[in-house]
Nucleic acid binder design. Structure first.
Length: 540
DNA sequence: AAGACTGTTT
């Protein structure tokens, strides 16, 4: 019977058609059928089978069912089953932990792991690597030394490559180079990936010399080793050293190319990023993928070149790059930053699924292009369709309100940010609100907000106030704001031109002359400004 | 049932 099922399982539709009434199936057969449904992502049919055979379920059946739900992203249902399970094994726990990790829920992983330990369950190698990788860059990273102790005491004094890598990455994240290298020394049968992790770890902590020393000492190197070194230099803003590594590499893959291109883009060196991308296309051996195109689109957005952006968009189609949520979001962002809001909307609406970043890009695009009402509309649609806004959403939204003169709307959202969504207002949110009040001429409110906010004002906040004072010719507050800026950074060129304008309007010509004198003496130059309107070589 | 070293977006 089992053999027959296995053979039939190769025909994708057969088993799903037979599941309408399959009672009293023996356990091995049930598990085999569940596995089949798992592999073709038919969790509903699997569930029907599962429900129809309560007496033949083994722990494995439950585990398989939970894995099916996690595979299709139904964390809630997986969790329910997990809670209902009469007896769990280590596989059940690992499956659940892995699902929580995939859904980016480090807190859930933490709770689940602690619970597992409390009940007295023994984690295994898989548990450790899942848990450690889930808590990286979160407050739960404190688990790493504890897991290490547990590993040494209860599992094995020497970690294998998987556990070793996980612990090394964890210690690198904690900024503990000594612990990291000690783990490395203790790994049984170190392989090239252990060495790579060591290079990356030192680079992440800023020990570039040590990383290079390790790199040179490696018994064997692969593309990943080279790319780790390259990426490390970029991480430490040593872009030229990164390029040297790139040039010396014997073998390059799409990851190496993308890392180097993106390194230029992130360091504002858009020209070299673009040049390298062209070189990549010309050399024709390694085709770019969605990672590469996202970086290149970011470069186009960075120089607000719609023409370049359109060319890249064409390239994406020409290369047949499959739909990807991040890539589409990059397109939305590029079009928005290049001033083509309509194109941004077209790309956005064509996206089959949108995530938080996609919504933020679009709302930010509306805000930048003076479509405040549209930004608000999109925000409503976002929340109605079940995407929870974050702090970036609100920066964009408040910015839109400020520039659209929508004071009450801005106040309403600033308020709901904390009360409804539990997001604490950051300095940037306060800056938006100061700007909002300032632009609306409510200088007193702007001033009061600066006074009560729980941060020291930065240049942006003072600048918003100063700009407003300039707009509404307020001498006293303007001087106050200028003092604020001076305390942070002595000669910000904008101070002088703004101050002299305010003083001039008030007829305080002696102050103006004095200011002009200071400007001359300090050789203050006006900041050069560029407009994105002309950056397509006058095309518009 | 499941894990590791290099690349993307606000």
């Amino acid at each position: 019977m089992l053999h027959t099922i296995r053979r039939l399982a190769r025909h994708p539709h057969f088993l799903s058609l037979t599941t309408f009434s399959c009672h009293h199936i023996p356990t091995p057969t049930l598990n085999c059928m569940l596995h089949h449904h798992y592999s073709i992502s038919m969790e509903n049919d699997a569930r029907r089978l599962f429900d129809q055979n309560p007496t033949s379920r083994s722990i494995g059946s439950w585990n398989m069912m939970i894995a099916s739900y996690l595979q299709s992203g139904q964390l809630r249902k997986a969790q329910d089953l997990f809670d209902q399970m009469p007896v769990k094994d280590v596989v059940s726990w690992n499956t659940m932990l892995s699902g929580l990790r995939k859904s980016k829920n480090p807190h859930g992983v933490y709770i689940c792991f602690i619970q597992m330990m409390r009940i007295g369950f023994r984690p295994n190698d898989h548990t450790i690597s899942v848990v450690v990788s889930a808590v990286l860059k979160t407050e739960f990273i404190v688990l790493v030394p504890q897991i290490h102790v547990f590993e040494v005491k209860s599992l094995a004094p020497n970690p294998n490559v998987f556990v070793g890598s996980a612990l090394m990455v964890g210690y690198a994240n904690l900024g503990n180079p000594v612990a990291m290298s000690r783990v490395f020394d203790e790994i049984l049968e170190r392989d090239v990936t252990s060495w790579n992790a060591l290079v990356s770890g030192y680079m992440e902590m800023g020990y570039t010399k040590e990383a290079l020393r390790v790199f040179d000492a490696m018994p064997e190197k692969n593309v990943v080793s080279w790319t780790s070194l390259l990426k490390g230099y970029i991480h430490n803003r040593m872009i030229n050293k990164a390029r040297d590594v790139f040039n010396k590499m014997g073998e390059r893959n799409v990851v190496s190319w993308t890392a180097m291109i993106n390194g230029y883009v992130q360091n504002q060196n858009l020209v070299n990023g673009w040049k390298l991308f062209r070189l990549m296309l010309r050399s024709g051996t390694i085709p770019p993928n969605h990672f590469t195109f996202s970086s290149v689109l970011d470069a186009c957005a960075g120089c607000s070149s719609l023409l370049m952006g359109q060319q890249v968009h064409t390239g994406i189609v020409k290369y047949g790059i499959p739909d990807d949520i991040v890539l589409s979001t990059s397109l939305v962002d590029m079009y928005a930053k290049c001033g083509d809001t309509d194109a941004a909307f077209r790309v956005f609406e064509a996206m089959p699924i949108k995530n938080l970043v996609s919504w933020n890009s679009l709302i930010g695009g509306c805000a930048r292009n003076g479509r405040a009402m549209r930004a608000l509309e999109m925000f409503n649609r976002m929340t109605e369709t079940g995407t929870k806004p974050d702090e970036v959403t609100f920066i964009n939204l408040l910015w839109a309100c400020g520039h659209g003169g929508l004071v009450e709307e801005g106040e309403k959202h600033f308020d709901s940010m904390v009360r409804k969504y539990g997001i604490l207002a950051g300095l940037e949110h306060y800056a938006c609100m100061v700007d909002l009040y300032g632009r609306a001429g409510q200088l007193e409110k702007a001033y009061k907000l600066i006074k009560v906010m729980p941060f020291e004002p930065d240049v942006v906040v003072w600048g918003a106030l100063l700009g407003a004072c300039c707009m509404y010719s307020s001498l006293e507050l303007g001087d106050y704001a200028a003092q604020g800026i001076k305390k942070l950074k002595d000669d910000h060129p904008a101070i002088y031109s703004m101050l002299s304008k305010i003083h001039g309007e008030k007829g305080a010509w002696s102050s103006v002359a004095e200011l002009k004198g200071i400007m001359k003496k300090k050789n203050v130059m006006k900041q050069t400004a560029g407009s994105w309107i002309v950056s397509d070589f006058g095309k518009r």
